[in-house]
Design a protein around this nucleic acid. Structure first.
Length: 538
DNA sequence: CATGTCACG
DNA sequence: ACGTACGTGACATGA
C-alpha cells in the first residue's frame, strides 16, 4: 500500500505523459533526484521534455534562483506549500510516505502543477535562445543521467584505514596543542581565530601583518608563515591547523557518511550552482580531497577499488590554458601546444629571453605563476605577492608576456569589451555568464567583475568540455556493458573503477574518448594513471 | 547565521 | 586612496 501511494504521487508529481505504449516523456524539477525512484518502480524514461532547474540555470547561472519555491514566486507570483508544512521540520520531520494521504496529495499535486507552469514560462523564454536549447539538449540533460549513475555508483573507501589515521592525527593534535599552550603560557582554544588573536597579538605582541575584511588581525596560514620566520608559536599553530583540518573534514566525516547498505560514499553533484558551468559536490565534497601534502595524500590512499577492480584516473592536461590558446588564436601559444612544448618552460623562455634549454626551475616557477595568474585576471600586485618580488618587476613580467603573446592580450581586452557591451560573456558552447557589476560605478565591484569576465570563458568552456567527455564515456560504458564505472568527477579529472582484467583496453578507450570529444585549434591531452587507490592512480 | 580558515581545480 | 587571482564546500566558533 505504501509503495503504491508513493508511486502514485510520483507519477502525479512528474507529469508523465503516455504517448505510445512505453514511451514516457516527462517534465520535472531536478530530475536527477527523481530518476532513481522512477527506476526503482520500473518506469523507464525515454525522453525528457525538460528539467525546470536546468532550464533556469542555462538562462541565467548567476545566484541561487533555481529552486522550485523561488521560481514559483518569480515566474508565477505564487508561494507554494513548504515541504516542512507537510512533513514537519528538523528533528520532528517524518518520511513523506508517512504523511496523511490528503495532505500528501495536495503537496504533490501542487508541486506537479507549478512545475509544469514554470516549464511553460521557461520554455517561452528559450524559444528565442537556440544556443541555450542546444546546451540543454546536448550537455545538461544527458549530463543529468550520467551524474545520476555516478552518484549511484559511489566510491569505495577503506574505513578501517581512515579511522586508524584519525586516531593517529588525534594523538599528534593533542601533543601540538600542549606544546602551544606551554609557549603561550596558558590554555586556549586553538580552533578559535578570535582567541588566537588575543594570544598572538595582544599577549605576545607579535606584529599584525594583515587584517581580515572585518578589520580583525588575520591569523591565516600566509600570515603565520611570515611570522614563523621570527617566532616559534606560529609554526606550531600551522602544523596543528593542518592536522586538525584533515581530521575534522576528512578522516572523521568520510567514515561517518558511508552508506549503510552499499558501504560506499555517495556524493551529490550540484548541476545548477556555479556561475561558470562547473559542477560542485556536496555531502561529502569529493572535489576537495587533499593532494598537496604527504599527510593529506594519505586520505587519497583510502579511496580504493572493489576486489578484482582497480582505479583509473584520467585528467586533462592544462585544459584552461589550451582553451585560452584556442579562443585567442595566439600564434605563439598555439605553436607551443601544437609542438608539445612544455608551456611553462616556453613562457619562461620568452619572458626571460633565454633558450628553452636554458630555462631554470626558478624561471619555470615564475612563468607558471604568470600563466595561472593570467587565467584569473590578476594584477601586477597579485603576481608580486605570489612570487615575492617587487611590484615593478611583476609589471615587467606581465608586459613582457603580452609582448610575446599579443593575441592573448587582445583576446582579454575584447572579452572585457564584450562583457561591458552585452553584460555577459559566452563559452565555446554558448553557455552564458552574466556580469551585472561590469559597468558598476563601484571600482572594487567593477574590477571583480572584470576578472570574472576574463576567467569565465576558460573555466566555463573547460566545464563544457569535460561534461561532454563524461557523457561520452558514460554512454560508451553503458552501451558496451563494460565492467567499469565512473565514480568521480573533479573538474578536469574522471576517476573510474574498472575490472582488473580489462584495464588496458578501457584505459586506452577512455583517453581516446576524452581527447576526441571536441576538436580545438590545439590538441587536448589526457594524462592517465592506474592504481589500487586514488593516490596511486593520479 | 556570519565569520575566518582552508581543502580542491 | 584603495584593494588587489577565478570558481567551489565544510568545519569550528561565537554572537
Amino acid at each position: 500500500m505504501k509503495n503504491l501511494v508513493v508511486k502514485l504521487l510520483l507519477i502525479i508529481n512528474l507529469e508523465i505523459k503516455r504517448k505510445t505504449t512505453d514511451q514516457k516523456k516527462l517534465v520535472g524539477q531536478n530530475l536527477k533526484f527523481d530518476l532513481p525512484m522512477l527506476n526503482r518502480h520500473g518506469i523507464k524514461v525515454t525522453e525528457f521534455l525538460g528539467d525546470t532547474m536546468l532550464m533556469s540555470y542555462v538562462l541565467n547561472s548567476t545566484g541561487t534562483r533555481h529552486g522550485l519555491d523561488r521560481m514559483a514566486m518569480h515566474y508565477l507570483n505564487y508561494q507554494p506549500m513548504k515541504y516542512e508544512e507537510v512533513a514537519g521540520s528538523a528533528s520532528k520531520q517524518i518520511n513523506f510516505a508517512q504523511v496523511e494521504i490528503p495532505a500528501a496529495t495536495f503537496y504533490a499535486a501542487e508541486d506537479a502543477d507549478i512545475t509544469l507552469r514554470i516549464y511553460n514560462c521557461l520554455n517561452k523564454k528559450l524559444k528565442d535562445e537556440p544556443k541555450l536549447v542546444n546546451l540543454l539538449k546536448t550537455i545538461e540533460y544527458p549530463m543529468l543521467q550520467s551524474l545520476q549513475r555516478v552518484e549511484t555508483n559511489g566510491a569505495k573507501i577503506d574505513a578501517k584505514m581512515l579511522s586508524d589515521y584519525s586516531k593517529e592525527l588525534g594523538a599528534k593534535i593533542e601533543k601540538l596543542s600542549k606544546q602551544a599552550f606551554k609557549m603561550a603560557g596558558e590554555e586556549f582554544n586553538m580552533d578559535s581565530p578570535k582567541q588566537l588573536v588575543e594570544i598572538l597579538f595582544n599577549k605576545l605582541e607579535l606584529p599584525v601583518l594583515k587584517k581580515t575584511p572585518k578589520g580583525q588581525p588575520s591569523t591565516n596560514e600566509d600570515t603565520l608563515q611570515r611570522l614563523a620566520e621570527e617566532y616559534d608559536l606560529p609554526k606550531v599553530i600551522i602544523e596543528y591547523r593542518g592536522l586538525a583540518k584533515l581530521k575534522s573534514t576528512y578522516t572523521d566525516s568520510l567514515t561517518n557518511i558511508q552508506h549503510p547498505i552499499t558501504k560506499r560514499i555517495h556524493t551529490s553533484y550540484q548541476q545548477a550552482v556555479t556561475s561558470t558551468g562547473r559542477l560542485s559536490s556536496t555531502e561529502p565534497n569529493l572535489q576537495n580531497i587533499p593532494i598537496k601534502t604527504p599527510e593529506g595524500r594519505k586520505i587519497r590512499e583510502a579511496f580504493i577499488a572493489e576486489k578484482g577492480n582497480i582505479l583509473i584516473s584520467a585528467d586533462y592536461s592544462q585544459i584552461e590554458l589550451r582553451i585560452m590558446a584556442h579562443l585567442s588564436g595566439d600564434k605563439n601559444l598555439t605553436h607551443a601546444f601544437n609542438n608539445n612544448i612544455d608551456v611553462h618552460s616556453a613562457t619562461a623562455s620568452e619572458i626571460f629571453n633565454v633558450s628553452l634549454e636554458a630555462v631554470t626551475p626558478e624561471h619555470r616557477r615564475s612563468a607558471k605563476a604568470i600563466n595561472f595568474g593570467l587565467i584569473y585576471g590578476m594584477s601586477a600586485f597579485g603576481l608580486a605577492k605570489q612570487l615575492g618580488i617587487p611590484r615593478y618587476q611583476a609589471q615587467e613580467y606581465i608586459d613582457l608576456y603580452f609582448k610575446n603573446y599579443p593575441q592573448v592580450q587582445s583576446f582579454m581586452d575584447e572579452t572585457k569589451e564584450k562583457a561591458r557591451k552585452h553584460g555577459h560573456i559566452e563559452t565555446i558552447y554558448g553557455r552564458r555568464l552574466y556580469l551585472p557589476d561590469i559597468n558598476s560605478k563601484n571600482g572594487l565591484r567593477r574590477k571583480y567583475a572584470e576578472r570574472s569576465a576574463i576567467n569565465a570563458p576558460m573555466q566555463g568552456s573547460a566545464a563544457d568540455i569535460i561534461k561532454l567527455a563524461m557523457i561520452d564515456v558514460s554512454n560508451w560504458l553503458k552501451s558496451e556493458n563494460a565492467p567499469a564505472r565512473i565514480i568521480m568527477q573533479v573538474h578536469d579529472e574522471l576517476v573510474l573503477e574498472v575490472q582488473s582484467d580489462v584495464i588496458s583496453d578501457i584505459r586506452s578507450k577512455i583517453v581516446e574518448i576524452m581527447e576526441s570529444t571536441v576538436s580545438l585549434k590545439v590538441p587536448l591531452i589526457v594524462d592517465v594513471g592506474v592504481g589500487k587507490n586514488w593516490d596511486e592512480a593520479h
